Measured scan of single mutants.
Amino acid sequence: LADDRTLLMAGVSHDLRTPLTRIRLATEMMSEQDGYLAESINKDIEECNAIIEQFIDYLR
């Protein structure tokens, strides 16, 4: 059971955070005209990261 939990934490961490990191990188490359959009996307990314952290904390 502990091994399954560790594997799940690693999978969640990698499989969800990697795309979020790519999205954040894309927002950094957006033009200044789209700053409001990038800010909104980054806020959503932070919310997703917080949910992931809560899930990982729960698994521990």
Rank of each mutant, 00 (worst) to 15 (best):
L1C: 12
L1V: 12
A2P: 12
A2H: 15
A2M: 03
A2C: 13
A2K: 07
A2N: 14
D3Y: 09
D3P: 09
D3S: 04
D3K: 04
D3R: 05
D3W: 14
D4W: 09
D4G: 09
R5W: 08
R5P: 09
R5Y: 09
R5C: 08
R5N: 09
T6Q: 03
T6S: 15
T6E: 00
T6P: 12
T6I: 14
T6H: 04
T6R: 02
L7K: 15
L7I: 12
L7V: 10
L8R: 11
L8W: 09
L8I: 04
L8K: 04
M9W: 11
M9C: 12
M9N: 12
M9T: 14
M9K: 11
M9P: 12
A10N: 06
A10F: 05
A10V: 00
A10K: 08
A10I: 03
A10E: 05
A10L: 09
A10P: 00
A10H: 00
G11S: 12
G11L: 07
G11A: 14
G11F: 15
V12Q: 02
V12Y: 03
V12L: 10
V12S: 00
V12D: 06
S13K: 08
S13W: 14
S13Y: 01
S13E: 09
S13V: 09
S13H: 03
S13R: 11
H14N: 01
H14C: 01
H14E: 01
H14A: 03
H14L: 01
H14Y: 02
D15A: 02
D15S: 01
D15H: 02
D15T: 02
D15K: 00
L16W: 14
L16R: 10
L16H: 15
L16I: 00
R17H: 10
R17L: 04
R17F: 10
R17Q: 12
R17N: 02
R17I: 12
R17Y: 00
R17C: 10
R17M: 09
T18H: 03
T18A: 03
T18S: 00
T18V: 12
T18Q: 08
P19S: 01
P19D: 02
P19N: 00
P19G: 00
L20R: 02
L20G: 09
L20F: 01
L20P: 06
T21N: 01
T21I: 04
R22S: 05
R22H: 02
R22V: 05
R22M: 03
I23Q: 01
I23L: 02
I23K: 05
I23S: 00
R24E: 14
R24S: 04
L25A: 15
L25D: 04
A26S: 14
A26R: 08
A26C: 14
A26N: 11
A26D: 09
T27G: 11
T27I: 13
T27N: 10
T27H: 12
T27K: 13
T27E: 10
E28R: 14
E28W: 00
E28H: 07
M29V: 08
M29S: 04
M29C: 04
M29I: 05
M29P: 09
M29R: 01
M29Q: 09
M30H: 11
M30A: 07
M30S: 07
S31T: 06
S31D: 06
S31F: 06
S31I: 06
S31G: 05
S31C: 06
S31R: 08
E32R: 07
E32V: 06
E32Y: 06
E32D: 05
E32H: 07
E32K: 06
E32C: 06
Q33W: 00
Q33C: 07
Q33T: 07
D34P: 13
D34V: 11
D34L: 10
D34I: 08
G35V: 06
G35Q: 06
G35A: 06
G35I: 07
G35D: 06
G35C: 06
Y36N: 14
Y36P: 08
Y36W: 08
L37F: 15
L37Y: 06
A38Y: 06
A38Q: 00
A38E: 08
A38M: 05
A38W: 11
A38S: 07
E39N: 09
E39P: 14
E39C: 07
E39I: 12
E39H: 11
S40D: 15
S40P: 12
I41R: 03
I41D: 15
I41Y: 11
I41E: 15
N42W: 05
N42M: 00
N42V: 11
N42G: 13
K43Q: 14
K43N: 03
K43C: 13
K43R: 10
K43T: 11
K43I: 03
K43S: 04
D44Y: 13
D44I: 07
D44R: 04
D44G: 14
D44Q: 01
I45C: 00
I45K: 08
I45S: 10
I45N: 06
I45L: 15
I45A: 05
I45W: 10
E46N: 14
E46D: 08
E46Q: 05
E47I: 14
E47C: 02
E47M: 03
E47Y: 00
E47N: 14
C48S: 11
C48T: 07
C48W: 13
C48I: 03
N49I: 02
N49E: 14
N49T: 05
N49C: 14
N49P: 04
N49Y: 05
A50L: 02
A50H: 04
A50E: 06
A50I: 04
A50T: 03
I51A: 15
I51K: 00
I52Y: 06
I52D: 09
I52C: 09
I52H: 02
I52A: 15
I52V: 09
I52E: 07
E53N: 13
E53K: 12
E53F: 15
E53H: 02
E53D: 13
E53W: 15
Q54R: 11
Q54S: 11
Q54E: 04
Q54C: 04
Q54H: 04
Q54T: 04
Q54N: 11
F55I: 10
F55G: 00
I56W: 05
I56R: 00
I56F: 07
I56D: 00
I56N: 06
I56E: 00
I56S: 05
D57F: 06
D57N: 04
D57M: 08
Y58T: 00
Y58G: 04
Y58I: 08
Y58M: 15
L59C: 00
L59Y: 12
L59A: 10
L59W: 04
L59E: 09
R60A: 02
